[in-house]
Nucleic acid binder design. Structure first.
Length: 108
DNA sequence: CATCTGACACAGA
DNA sequence: GTCTGTGCCAGAT
């Protein structure tokens, strides 16, 4: 797989602790890119969605967004993680949001 | 609240 | 190798 970009997305996915969620934009920014949509595409293209907890990735609006197994399934999974979801969106996104640290070689 | 445009990476022709 | 279309989106109007 030469999809180096996608691989990075999957790697960041594993960085998300259980009970926490993140947004596509956050992942994109963590990759120093603005391809938030490409990040989502990585999840969709991912066949290991069972292994890769892509369900912990939601939209910046706080809404769950789409999911390969269906939005309802994604919500169910998040509920099991302990995320409070109301009316198809996270009640307190900022409460469960997880931001990636700058793991890049920041040699300032 | 609904709608349109913008930005980026990947797949197909 | 280049062009077009699209996608688990984001932000502004």
């Amino acid at each position: 797989m030469s999809t180096h970009f996608y691989q990075r997305c999957y790697t960041l996915l594993e960085q998300i602790p259980k009970g926490k969620v993140t947004t596509y934009a956050e992942i994109a920014k963590a990759l120093d890119s603005k391809a938030y949509q490409a990040v989502g595409s990585a999840m969709a293209k991912n066949k290991l969605l069972i292994i890769r907890p892509c369900h912990r990735v939601i939209r910046s609006d706080g809404y769950i967004g789409e999911y390969a197994l269906g939005t309802d399934k994604k919500i169910e999974l998040l509920l099991q993680e302990g995320i409070e979801i109301v009316d198809g969106r996270v009640y307190d996104l900022n409460k469960f949001i997880y931001t990636f640290k700058q793991q890049s070689n920041n040699t300032l």
